[in-house]
Nucleic acid binder design. Structure first.
Lengths: 126, 126
DNA sequence: CAGTATCCATTAAGATACTG
DNA sequence: CAGTATCTTAATGGATACTG
């Protein structure tokens, strides 16, 4: 269950890669970075294809690693909000050059973007 | 066998993470970055714990992704040199802030460094 | 030296179904 | 709504023996 990872590491990049390895982790960080705060279901919708299990698991690990803060409201129905911690914000900043490089690479190899789930047209909530 | 990965991706970071996902990839990049050029056996020694299979596999993928150049010398015994391509160098540069963040994180959590294989004391080559 | 080829173990991820 | 609990499959990594 990915017990608290704490090295040993070869170097800083190794240590950083450790906390972001997981299929959806950087995307969760990205999502939180751009929305400031997100609820569980919002994250789920923002990450088309993620399963509940993986989303929870990644969120828990990110929380454990001190990158994400989880705020539970004592309400019914339940309400939980996630946001980046100071360290999470710093990580995101450190990831930006990598994002730029990746965008350039996508252009080079002609990679497609993942199809964005079209907002359901019919069936609007009344 | 990790057929040519080319998306689709959610974003640039996603695309970048794709090419560096693999237990030893960033370490290979790092090693090549700091030595300029390395032979297979040198990389192997520089990455204590890596198996031949993983090293070859990662090198092939990095080559396929255009990050590493492989130069074969027509000699006996065989000699192969690896070095970063222009894109590989750019990726390494983009990884630097992440490395800084990771180093800071290691300090914060008191992570240890992986034990460096001690250079064999006896048995020096004549 | 620089790899291949196998086989096996571990881990990560995905699909449901169910609950406070 | 925000999760748990299981079960299954896919991907990744590792050990070892062998080769041009």
């Amino acid at each position: 269950m990915a017990t608290t990872r704490q090295g040993p590491y070869f170097c800083g990049i190794d240590a950083a890669m450790d906390v972001v390895s997981g299929k959806w982790k950087v995307l969760i960080l990205w999502e939180l970075h751009h929305h400031g705060t997100r609820r569980f279901a919002e994250l789920r919708r923002g990450l088309p294809g993620v399963s509940e299990k993986m989303l929870v698991q990644h969120l828990r690990e990110l929380e454990e690693d001190g990158l994400v803060h989880r705020k539970v409201y004592a309400e019914v129905p339940p309400k939980v909000e996630y946001r980046l911690t100071e360290h999470g914000v710093a990580l995101n900043t450190a990831l930006e050059p990598l994002g730029t490089w990746g965008t350039e690479r996508m252009r080079r190899i002609g990679a497609t973007k993942v199809p964005v789930a079209p907002a359901p047209v019919s069936r609007q909530p009344s």
